[in-house]
């Protein structure tokens, strides 16, 4: 028996909206420590992983580990039936073939329950070693969103370089070129509005903007985003979901043939 009650149900909706375009059919691994998912996109270019900790839920029960095969598009359709202030409860039996979602309004005067059919999904799991990053940047998630959106109107790929000057995003296309440089700041009113750059060594990597733009769909989940760059390795883009967990994206770089 699995049962989890999330007071801030809108977080679940935002999470599914943040990943559904990259991964359509995924396994959620449920254990008494929480809910985990890891899935590559169809072209095996990027990977999405999330963790929702059991202690982030108002109530969490999992008698034995379960794997729930979920079509995220269908789950997103169901979550559209929930109100933005609804409390969401998820339930599944140990050998069941459905996930029950219950939406309770704030005043608990309206209750919706929906059964989502589960699927059997063959999934591949990647082992991601702990990495020693060349450069780690923390910035407002709205800033990241704006950079990748703005550069998408210039070109399809972006060069990201971290130097002692700051972190520079450069795009080149038929209409011209654009560079956006972020410098470290410390003067913002709120800590999360600052740009922090921790650089161990200069690094330059090239990525497809389409994917970086897709990662920005997680912006509503967190006010900040961390971008980890490592020489010759995939970029990691992390959104921490306050008091609940995280969603992380990994994207393989483009390389010269």
């Amino acid at each position: 028996m699995f049962e989890a009650r999330l007071i801030q149900g809108s977080l679940l909706k935002k999470l599914v909206d943040a990943i559904k375009e990259l991964c359509t059919e995924v396994n959620w691994d449920i254990s008494n420590s929480g809910i985990n998912m890891q899935s590559m996109d169809g072209s095996h270019v990027c990977l999405v992983a999330f963790n929702l900790r059991a202690d982030g839920f108002d109530h969490f029960r999992c008698d034995r580990p379960l794997t729930l095969g979920i079509n995220l598009g269908n789950l997103a359709k169901i979550l559209k039936c929930s109100g933005s202030n609804d409390i969401i409860t998820m339930k599944a039996d140990d050998n069941g073939d459905t996930l029950t979602l219950m939406f309770e309004s704030e005043k608990q005067d309206r209750i919706t329950d929906v059964d989502l059919k589960l699927m059997s999904i063959e999934s591949e799991h990647l082992g991601i070693p702990d990495q020693d990053y060349s450069a780690e940047t923390s910035m407002p998630s709205s800033e990241y969103q704006r950079i990748v959106r703005d550069l998408s109107s210039i070109g399809d790929t972006v060069n990201i370089s971290a130097t002692k000057e700051g972190i520079k995003f450069s795009a080149m296309g038929d209409i011209g070129t654009a560079n956006i440089t972020l410098r470290q700041t410390s003067s913002a009113d709120k800590e999360e509005e600052n740009v922090k750059i921790e650089m161990k060594e200069p690094v330059l990597l090239t990525f497809a903007l389409r994917y970086l733009n897709n990662f920005a769909k997680a912006t509503p989940l967190s006010s900040t985003v961390q971008v980890f760059l490592t020489k010759d390795l995939p970029v990691q883009v992390n959104y921490n979901i306050q008091d609940l967990g995280y969603v992380k994206y990994y994207l393989a770089p483009k390389i010269e043939e």
Binding site: L126, G127, I255, E256, E257
Partner: peptide, 14 residues
Amino acid sequence: TPVQNNLEEYYALL
């Protein structure tokens, strides 16, 4: 022009 690499080039399938 650079080509897109895939993740299996970096991470092992478990």
